[in-house]
Design a protein around this nucleic acid. Structure first.
Length: 428
RNA sequence: GUGGGUGUAGCUCAGCUGGUAGAGCGCUGCGUUGUGGUCGCAGAUGCCGCGGGUUCAAGUCCCGUCACUCACCCCA
């Protein structure tokens, strides 16, 4: 039979790297949980219109990167390309916006974009995200950014930086937009870029081609055209960021791909990933809730890329991520000791000790090899001799020391637990 | 959607100007008497991505195709 391959651009995480992936996902969400954010579990597909309205029909994401299909009821369904729109929909639908504000939520899971895959860019990507709805307090902006920052730090990442700017609001951005468009009209640009200047002039600022970049040196910047409220808000955000102990780069030319962002906008960048250097990003969105039929509430959030963060960890060679997952490996010598071995295994697992048993009647030599490969710090050997004396051999793998002890749960289990905890202390 | 690169053992790869395949790691076994990691010895494993062409002969050249990959675009 012919083997079947995974669809294009979707990653498999297999052991042992899957352990790292899992650890990264856990660590990325830990700071949000520590900050009182509640978990929200959402569907992976939504009505297509949610993203058209929420993310913005003019964005590349909506125009050419969505997995859209018609279901059996003839409804247009789309696999979610990002998280914020779905969270807003659920908040509105479940009336969370009518309760006490702000609503602080975190989520995680897969997202889908039909892009051409490359290093750090997949068609199914995993994100950990956070959204705060119903507050414009700049403390919230700073907190959200600080949580993301802490997420990366808790993994031990160091070589990343935070890009920060303000994109203004519905008062000041339109004015700036016209200003920028007039500037762009005087530039020598190709047709495609001209079209973009009409549709979304800010995006032109992000162009990486030298011919374009050279012409944009003196382009007007949003940051210089902020209205009084936006300026004050941005000043305060930065003030609180200092209190949170977060440092950043001012990047007035930063542009994000989703239409809903206003005011505070940020991106975490890691230089070790190649072209796809953004490991997370987010910002404030003033109009999104009402655009999706909810109350006039502002929100702010971020999405952190789990896949890319893992790549960043690997780029920094953060190997302490990888630990064995077993505490103890049980080795029954000779077939007659298998039953007692399983009985032992049950005791261990019930006591919360991560344990496995060598099967398939391997020779003790070969079983030791298998046990060694699991990285379990302790091995329990039980054979005919031990059956006779109702004992078991505990072997400490790193030193090779071993001792025979009574296979009595009330004494064996505490002893193992003590050995494991001293071993853990030695390790750290 | 556009361009470049690569496809040879489980993994990482070597195979110069064409003569039917190699290394390292891993795996299996052995180094006697119930014990892994180091070391030594032995061994197994390949439709050389797929299809066609040139040739006495192709992993090696040509064409096509598929897959993977990197970059542009865009983004986590």
């Amino acid at each position: 039979m012919e083997a079947i391959n995974a669809p294009k651009g979707v990653p498999d995480y297999v052991p042992p790297r899957s352990r790292d992936f899992y650890t990264v996902q856990e660590q990325l969400s830990a700071p949000a949980r520590l900050s009182g954010y509640e978990y929200i579990e959402l569907p992976v597909f939504e009505a297509t219109e949610l993203f058209e309205r929420g993310v913005g029909a003019s964005t590349d994401v909506v125009q050419k990167e969505m997995y859209t299909f018609t279901d059996r009821g003839d409804r247009s369904i789309t696999l979610r390309p990002e998280g914020t729109a779905g969270v807003m929909r659920a908040v509105i639908e479940n009336r969370l916006d009518k309760g006490s504000l702000p609503v602080k939520l975190w989520y995680r899971g897969p997202f889908f974009r039909a892009e051409r895959p490359q290093h750090g860019r997949y068609r199914q990507l995993q994100q950990v995200g956070v959204e705060v709805i119903g507050s414009v307090d700049p403390i919230i902006d700073a907190e959200v950014i600080a949580i993301a920052d802490q997420s990366y730090r808790s993994l031990g990442l160091q070589d990343f930086h935070l890009d920060l700017t303000s994109l203004g609001c519905s008062n000041c951005r339109p004015t700036y937009r016209v200003l920028l468009q007039e500037f762009l009209k005087r530039c020598d640009l190709d047709q495609e870029t001209r079209a973009r200047a009409e549709l979304n002039p800010l995006r032109v600022l992000d162009d990486k081609r030298e011919v374009v970049v050279a012409q944009l040196v003196n382009a007007p910047l949003m940051i210089d055209s902020l209205c009084e409220q936006c300026q004050q808000h941005y000043d305060e955000v930065r003030e609180y960021l200092r209190v949170f102990g977060v440092s950043w780069n001012e990047t007035p030319r930063m542009v994000r791909g989703l239409d809903y962002y206003t005011r505070t906008t940020f991106e975490f960048v890691h230089p070790g990933l190649g072209a796809q250097s953004g490991i997370g990003g987010g910002g404030r969105y003033d109009g999104l809730m009402s655009e999706l039929g909810g109350a006039e509430l502002s929100g702010i959030g971020f999405g952190l890329g789990v896949d890319r963060t893992l790549l960043a960890c690997e780029a920094e060679r953060l190997t302490p991520l990888r630990k064995g997952i077993l505490d103890v490996c049980v080795i029954p010598v000779e077939a007659e000791s298998r039953t007692q071995g399983v009985a032992l295994l049950v005791q261990l697992r019930r006591a919360g000790i991560a344990a496995d048993i060598c099967v398939d009647n391997r020779s003790i030599k070969s079983a030791m090899k298998v046990a060694n490969n699991t990285n379990a710090p302790l091995v329990l050997i039980i054979g005919p001799d031990e059956l006779e004396t109702q004992s078991v051999i505990i072997k400490e793998m790193s030193s090779g020391d071993q001792q025979s002890v009574l296979a009595e749960p009330t004494t064996l289990i505490p002893q193992l637990q003590e050995m494991l905890s001293t071993l853990r202390e030695e390790q750290s």
